[in-house]
């Protein structure tokens, strides 16, 4: 057997892994995106709890971020993977579901990323909320806005605006975190490279390809976040 050239190896020919790698890149983007959104929900609630006057909520939220900050993400993912579906199975059992609750690796992965990135996003949202002009909140209250309306019309749009740079960082983080999801068997970019490296015994070729694909995603998303930031600030005068 003749050694394949690098481009045959990652190309789209019969011996090439090109299509598999591209599909896996799509999977990386999909799981990272869903995880990021799940993290936004978690992050919003945790930020809200941290800012609330309720001691129990604050303690709970602080405990959550402390634990997540203190233990390796790899462990969080493992725990979520092994413990999560056992817990889910137990809950399902209560409602009479039959033993097996299949949680696709994709959902497990996205939720795990959500739990980890939620801690980071909570800090981003909290920081952004604290920049808000208190006067605007008072004004909203004085015209009779209710809490949810105020959140939707006043708080959310502005917090999102201030949070964009922080969210950009979190997104990069989530993207890299998605590589750890490979340990749960989800065929994303790293796992596919890993499989290909093992199958062809050409580790360097595939890991360097993976690294380049990650860099391309990083580069494009940095650009998009910068665009979003400029767009969101279009009505504001720069103070600096």
């Amino acid at each position: 057997m003749q050694q394949l050239s690098y481009f045959e190896l990652i190309g789209f020919g019969p011996k090439g892994w090109g299509l598999a790698l591209l599909t896996a890149t799509g999977m990386t983007l999909a799981v990272a995106l869903c995880g990021f959104l799940a993290g936004s929900i978690v992050g919003t609630f945790v930020a809200w709890a941290k800012l609330s006057r309720n001691l129990a909520a604050r303690t709970l939220a602080d405990g959550y971020t402390t634990v997540l900050r203190g233990i390796p993400d790899l462990l969080v993912i493992y725990l979520f993977y092994f413990g999560g579906s056992a817990a889910l199975g137990a809950i399902g059992g209560l409602f009479g579901a039959q033993g097996f609750i299949g949680v696709p690796a994709f959902v497990t992965g996205a939720l795990a990323i959500g739990i980890v990135s939620g801690a980071y996003q909570a800090e981003v949202f909290r920081g952004a909320y604290q920049i808000l002009n208190r006067g605007e909140l008072e004004a909203a209250r004085s015209v009779g806005m209710h809490r949810w309306l105020m959140f939707r019309r006043i708080i959310a749009p502005q917090v999102l605006r201030y949070a964009i740079p922080g969210l950009g960082n979190t997104w990069q983080l989530v993207l890299k975190e998605s590589a750890l999801i490979s340990v749960t068997g989800l065929v994303e970019l790293l796992r596919q490279s890993h499989i290909a490296a093992g199958s062809t015994r050409r580790p360097f070729d595939f890991y360097i390809t993976a690294a380049i694909l990650y860099l391309v995603i990083t580069w494009v998303s940095t650009y998009l976040f910068q665009r979003a930031e400029t767009h969101s600030l279009r009505g504001l005068r720069r103070t600096s």
Binding site: K176, A179, L180, S182, L190, F204, Y207, Y214, T218
Partner: peptide, 23 residues
């Protein structure tokens, strides 16, 4: 800085350990 912050550490570890083993 861009390259090392833009790629997962796990990829870097694999690249250095198994990847360089190829050479």
């Amino acid at each position: 800085v861009f390259v090392f912050r833009g790629t997962p550490l796990l990829v870097q570890i694999f690249l250095i350990y198994y990847g360089l083993g190829q050479f």
